[in-house]
Nucleic acid binder design. Sequence first.
DNA 1: TTTAAATCCGCAACCGATTGCAAAAAAATA
DNA 2: TATTTTTTTGCAATCGGTTGCGGATTTAAA
Lengths: 334, 334
Amino acid sequence: MTGMKKKGEVTIYDISRALNISASTVSRGLNNSPQVRKELRKKIMHTAQEMGYQHNKFAANLRQKRTRTLGVIIPRIDSHFMSTVISGMEKVANNSGYQLLISQSEESAALEEANIQALFNSRVDGLLVSLSYETKTKDAFANILRKDIPLVFFDRVFDCGNCVSVVIDNYRAGYEATQHLVDQGCRKIVHVAGSLNRNVYNDRYRGYRQALMDNSMNFDDKMLIITDLGDGSGVSIINHLLNNGTMPDGIFTANDNSAVSLICELKRKGFRVPDDIAMVGFNDDPVSRIVEPNLTTVRYPGRAIGEVAASTMIRILEGTQYEKVNSIILSHEL
Amino acid sequence: MTGMKKKGEVTIYDISRALNISASTVSRGLNNSPQVRKELRKKIMHTAQEMGYQHNKFAANLRQKRTRTLGVIIPRIDSHFMSTVISGMEKVANNSGYQLLISQSEESAALEEANIQALFNSRVDGLLVSLSYETKTKDAFANILRKDIPLVFFDRVFDCGNCVSVVIDNYRAGYEATQHLVDQGCRKIVHVAGSLNRNVYNDRYRGYRQALMDNSMNFDDKMLIITDLGDGSGVSIINHLLNNGTMPDGIFTANDNSAVSLICELKRKGFRVPDDIAMVGFNDDPVSRIVEPNLTTVRYPGRAIGEVAASTMIRILEGTQYEKVNSIILSHEL
DNA sequence: TTTAAATCCGCAACCGATTGCAAAAAAATA
DNA sequence: TATTTTTTTGCAATCGGTTGCGGATTTAAA
């Protein structure tokens, strides 16, 4: 069927035959079990090496009912933030002898569900998820939860009894970002957000609202713009604002892509940034340091989020996570 | 040992008992084999669904000696280019029912070798690799090659008899980039490169040399600067050039990170870009479109590279790749 | 030397799906 | 109805480590 036949693999049985001992001893020897005397252990390993033996994970997995594999589902991997998260995760996992099975939901709830299913079938020991833009319910996770497969959400999370969330305090970050604009003298601040179904955007939005309120600034619906936050979102947002005649003197936007896009478009339209319109972004994309004028942005610790999510998961799996945590909040900074 | 016991899994034996048929028929039924009559097939699937059956890939893998898993080794995942490549790969793989096992070499030959070994042990059906900065020999791939595990290199490749390479024509791209600078009136062009052990940098360098030669411009060693191309490389490069008194009027640099870094540093030192010094980058990072002045850059089709690499691998595995190819060259553009 | 305690090792069952082979059942032909 | 052909189904072996349990061997204690 594959058109490709495997070469004869060397098994522990071959080794046992070569050394004239039993396969169980070989297995124990290779696993460095104290049940096999040191000398013999060495001989086994040496012979294994010599014969080109390769451990077969499937046989082991089948028997042990675990895979040392973590499933990861993210919207997309090709964003600065996500690839940084994954990088941190991969490193931690690798150091602990785990491997990552990564799949992309492409912001689609259906694909997300298919991926959950596929990873479930692959018998991942645990699942690390950042939700798609579309996802509304946790139905898709029913199988996972039913079988007590540990579930860790990061960044875009669900509030969920039996699982852990790794996030930053988006509410506070949103508050601080808005306050920063107020401190700069802005009196009319627009917020550009993503889907309010996602905690990250909802929390930032709530922080923004609270900051306005605490500064006795009023808010109306026209000051909240919900978009996909894509690279090209700037044009339509600015047009929208111009048409509404509600040009603000400050914009707090929920990621850096859209911030950059907005800045470019504003400049094209003749506005000066930050003199006419001040701007705060979110995510600490490298672009934010390059674009002129430099963009104020909320530092989003992607690598740390990945590392913490992975190490938490591993502690849960190894049974060394004693306290029952529901969410882990990492620090951010402007 | 894990502290976590699995719930009793439903197996084909449970189903066979429930339906009073043999496990082999259940297996065939679940695989939609025509050997089982349609009606029964449906009943089997239905019962499986109902009982919450989950296919166990390990048992299947163990028996079939294949995993439908592709190993991927890259220097780092947290760069725009690489994450785009991976994104394309993942999508293609997923569509064909394959999964990706991704690991990072962090530019270290030792870690790369460890990853090869780990993926080998995981019995990946094929291996997709972009080499680390350090790698010098193909020794680490000996096991892979010996067992005829298909090997596809992309971007940073080895010239290797039995495997495929997916690349762009870096030589021509280097030539064109240099020629572009010449056309802009540059008479003294410096090239900033990565390790010349890597084809990508070597080829670009050779293209650069050839372009100089074809324009009767001379070259001396001081005009080639080899660096790690990191985000912070600009400062030291400019200092180096200033100290040498060899300030050029054009720079062709082998990636966009360093280009941006260079531009920033040049501006800080009071040079005007591109009036005093023109610049061409490489990789088509989003930053290249944001930085001012806009950076001329070679469009590097990351997603396409990932897609082509993955689909080629899958064709090889499925035995539908008939022609014997050694390298696939994708097009680029300025 | 005998007995008790440790240490080492192997037997054989097990994990769960796949598949060659052959028997059984059903359908087609004589 | 008997025979051949075709379609369905089941038996049992297989993939390769892992591990509980008991037996064998060695060492220590009596």
